[in-house]
Design a protein around this nucleic acid. Sequence first.
RNA 1: GGAAGGAUGCCCGAGUGGCCGAAGGGACACGCCUCGAAAGCGUGCGAGGUUCUUGCCUCCGUGGGUUCAAAUCCCACUCCUUCCGCCA
Length: 430
Amino acid sequence: MIDVRLLRSDLESVRARMTRRGKPDLLAQIDDAVALDARLRSLAVERDDLRRRVNDLSKQVGQLRREGRAADADAAMADSRRLGDEEKSLAATTAETEEQLRQVLLRIPNLISDEAPDGNSDADNPVVRVHGFDPSSIADHQRVPHWETGVALGILDNERAAKISGAMFSMLRGAGATMSRALCQLALDRNADAFEEIRPPTLVTSATLTSTGQLPKFADDAYSIERDDLWCIPTAEVPLTSISAGEILDEAELPRRFMAYSPCYRRESGSAGRDTRGLLRGHEFDKVEILAYAAPEQGRALLDEFVARAAGTIEALGLPYRVVAICAGDLGQSHHLSFDIEVFAPGADRWLEVSSVSWFSDYQARRADIRFRRAGQKGTEHVHTLNGSALAVPRVLAAILEYYRQPDGSVLVPEALRPYMRGITVIGPR
RNA sequence: GGAAGGAUGCCCGAGUGGCCGAAGGGACACGCCUCGAAAGCGUGCGAGGUUCUUGCCUCCGUGGGUUCAAAUCCCACUCCUUCCGCCA
């Protein structure tokens, strides 16, 4: 949620920054918010004044009673009752306006960073840097899509996954399942120096899903369990962000860092049939997420650190990758500034997004009400939140099955994964 | 799933209709004292909104209700604890 006060103090700058997202109807939403806010404030002033008078009269009633002036007390009581009725109807109007404003505000996206490049869609995202990518070094035996290799080696069985759960679910077997787990282990171990490991719940309440920005706007993208009013998390970002919801932290404990392995559930409602072969996109996948609560001034540097950590793990796996800056028009609703890491998959012959690292400024913290107190100062501020995939398993696994494929059709296990592979160094046909 | 008890400020804890935004203690901060510290003493110490300051409004798990007036009474819900049942 953006700060309403910004709409009052610096409306033009808000409008200018929203314009960069390239969504014309946003400006109308902002106008709605401004109007509702103005209305709310005048209503609140009026309501508070009535309350003050009711409170005063009520106190007088008690006072007069104690002094034995029953007639005066009755008169004050009558006055108070009359004002109270007025207050009640005004309070109802105010509450209604408040809720309207909240609903509008929940749908207004975050202010984007000046640093985010211009652009309308992912096609405009500039490549920031490329590592280890040399198309001329890629041999024919690597140009086999992982869904073929995976089936040939008996480690990927999407047919049976579909039998069990329907389309867009996948099942790994044998060394494939082991490698999936190994990738999680690797990502967790590489970040254990700075992050507390969490095993969060993966079913969450509506309030939790609202804090990170998935609700109310993107309800169709998440699985819901209506009978119990719970939602399946689309990413561990959701529970991790809400760990300190409603809490006030000390400046000294910032940045506060968490990491978590979790399954992630996505309905992928808009993308059925697109890029769904093999392990490219599924309703359920494993991911290791890293996240931090930070003081505002720590945000930018942490974003770089998160990108470096995610890229470092890909590098340790020996995979070619590039870092892409997300342009203004492609930035998600909650995002302030984001970078994606993409791995080149020679068999699928394309770059796969394997990590998205984002800085949310105070947008999520305001929704989740996560604040901190600066040492020696009165009052509180909202923290900034950042998060990123330390490693998204299926796509990295896909890239490995292609990049590490050998002329005889087997797949070499990357050096970095071997400690977690029970001695398997090569995945051959069964 | 059934039964009972509970939820108050950073923590503990008092408060059963008005004088309670909330006693008392602890923790914390500052000052005094001290060579320094501990102990002692004094002062301060929740959050949000609105406001030039003063002030005013809101918040005692959440949401409703009763009342001139609610932390306090009523209803519903959530969570915690204990017991029973069930269960990986």
